[in-house]
């Protein structure tokens, strides 16, 4: 459902992503990990058609994102890390707005919007402007907007940002069920525990390139570590956490 071949994005003086190739099958949830600036968001933006790759190709749900962007975008949903929304709209209006951009039938859109807002416990705030929402409520609207057209492929960039414990549980359950129904997901997060629990397969990115791919156990074994966390630190060049903490405190004179 997602295929990237030699995906590269170059900015003046910087290679954000270098020759990325990977595939994600139908119904698969793949964790996309990497330290800050590794190129995760740039990759997702290329895969969602928000920016053009400098070279390489990518297909989403069988459509080339550069040549047939509209067809691909009809089939994908995206929860951005930035959480930016048109905040003068209400939650309900924003969902209707996105539904219109997807050419969704208005009655269907209304029904689904109600269902999602109900599910996330913000139906009572449906007619309240987004600028008055908390960060978690905004995230719930973003997730609902990404799901409203029932996409075949979901790109989730830090989707749990700001969600309370209950909403996070609900969302994780939704992800599992959608996966069981055949929805493909690329899950970007910095929270390794969540990724480890939700994603049977993980891709680790560093400085724009894939440095590891496989199940959490496989990645840990190959790195010669016991946990994914330790493997991640080793692979991305982060020093041993305990050692770093000790040096840090020493630098503070404690």
């Amino acid at each position: 459902m997602i295929t990237a071949v030699g995906l590269t994005k170059t900015y003046p003086g910087k290679d954000a992503v270098r020759g990325l190739s990977f595939t994600v099958g139908k119904g698969e949830i793949v964790g996309f990990l990497g330290p800050n600036g590794a190129g995760k968001t740039t990759t997702v933006r290329m895969l969602t058609g928000m920016i053009r790759p400098t070279s390489g190709t990518a297909t989403v749900a069988g459509y080339d994102i550069t040549r047939e962007p509209i067809e691909a975008k009809k089939r994908l949903g995206y929860v951005p890390e930035s959480g930016a929304l048109f905040e003068t709209l209400t939650g309900g209006e924003y969902l209707r707005f996105v539904a219109d951009l997807h050419h969704l039938d208005r009655d269907v859109a209304e029904r689904r919007a109600d269902e999602f807002l109900d599910l996330f416990g913000i139906r009572a705030q449906r007619d309240q402007r987004i600028q008055e929402y908390s960060k978690g409520m905004k995230q719930k609207v973003l997730i609902s907007a990404a799901l409203i057209h029932q996409p075949q492929v979901l790109f989730l960039d830090e989707p749990l940002n700001g969600l309370d414990a209950n909403a996070a549980l609900v969302f994780k359950e939704i992800i599992k069920r959608l996966s069981a129904q055949g929805t493909t997901m690329l899950f970007c997060s910095h929270i390794l525990d969540v990724v480890e629990k939700l994603c049977p397969r993980i891709i680790i990115l560093n400085e724009g390139s894939i440095i590891a791919e496989g199940t959490p156990e496989l990645i840990a074994n190959r790195a010669g570590e016991e946990t994914l966390e330790d493997a991640f630190c080793r692979l991305t060049g982060v020093r041993d956490a305990r050692e770093s903490a000790r040096d840090f405190l020493e630098a503070l004179g404690r």
Binding site: I70, K73, K74, P80, S82, F86, L101, A145
Partner: peptide, 15 residues
């Protein structure tokens, strides 16, 4: 002022 929300025009199939 909220121009960053325009990402939605790029990630949806809208013409």
């Amino acid at each position: 002022d909220n121009f960053q929300a325009a990402w939605v025009f790029f990630a949806t199939p809208a013409d």
